[in-house]
Simulated scan of single mutants.
Amino acid sequence: MADLYRKNLESERRQLWATCRLKGLKRDTSERLRIAEIDRLLAEHEAKKQQPPVERGEG
């Protein structure tokens, strides 16, 4: 199954990064801050995905 949340974040990150490179934007711009936020969200999402499933006892 496709992970659409991750794909959307990565797509937005690539687009922002291309804009920053094209315009030569510095680190403290809103675009660069959003890239950092997207990196954090991707890391959190990946960490959630790699957690082992919780086993439930029947009862």
Rank of each mutant, 00 (worst) to 15 (best):
A2F: 15
A2R: 15
A2E: 15
D3C: 05
D3M: 03
L4I: 12
Y5P: 04
R6C: 09
R6F: 11
R6V: 14
K7L: 13
N8F: 10
N8C: 09
N8A: 11
N8G: 10
L9W: 01
L9C: 02
L9A: 01
E10Q: 04
E10W: 02
E10H: 01
S11A: 09
S11D: 10
E12G: 05
R13A: 03
R13I: 00
R14Q: 12
R14T: 07
Q15C: 10
Q15D: 14
Q15I: 12
Q15T: 13
L16G: 01
L16V: 01
L16W: 00
W17N: 14
W17V: 12
W17P: 01
W17M: 14
A18C: 07
A18E: 13
T19A: 12
T19Q: 14
T19K: 13
T19V: 14
T19M: 10
C20R: 04
C20H: 03
R21V: 15
R21Y: 14
R21H: 11
L22V: 15
L22I: 13
L22H: 15
K23H: 11
K23S: 08
K23C: 06
K23N: 09
L25C: 02
L25S: 02
L25T: 01
L25W: 03
L25D: 00
R27H: 13
R27W: 12
D28F: 14
T29N: 05
T29G: 03
S30E: 15
S30Q: 14
S30M: 12
E31I: 04
E31M: 04
R32D: 06
R32Q: 10
R32G: 06
L33Q: 13
L33F: 11
R34C: 01
R34K: 08
R34Q: 05
I35E: 00
A36V: 11
A36Q: 11
E37F: 07
E37K: 11
I38N: 01
I38M: 00
I38S: 00
I38H: 00
I38P: 00
D39K: 03
D39E: 05
D39N: 05
D39Y: 01
R40G: 06
L41D: 02
L41C: 04
L42H: 04
L42G: 02
L42F: 05
L42V: 04
A43V: 05
A43H: 05
A43T: 07
E44Q: 05
H45P: 00
H45W: 01
E46F: 07
E46R: 03
E46W: 06
E46Y: 07
E46D: 07
E46L: 04
A47W: 03
K48Q: 07
K48V: 02
K48A: 05
K48E: 06
K48D: 07
K49S: 10
K49Y: 12
K49H: 11
Q50W: 13
Q50Y: 14
Q51E: 12
Q51I: 06
P52S: 11
P52K: 13
P52D: 06
P52I: 07
P53A: 15
P53C: 11
P53I: 14
E55W: 15
E55R: 15
E55C: 10
G57T: 08
G57Y: 09
G57K: 07
G57E: 09
G57P: 07
G57L: 10
G59E: 06
G59Y: 09
G59I: 08
G59A: 11
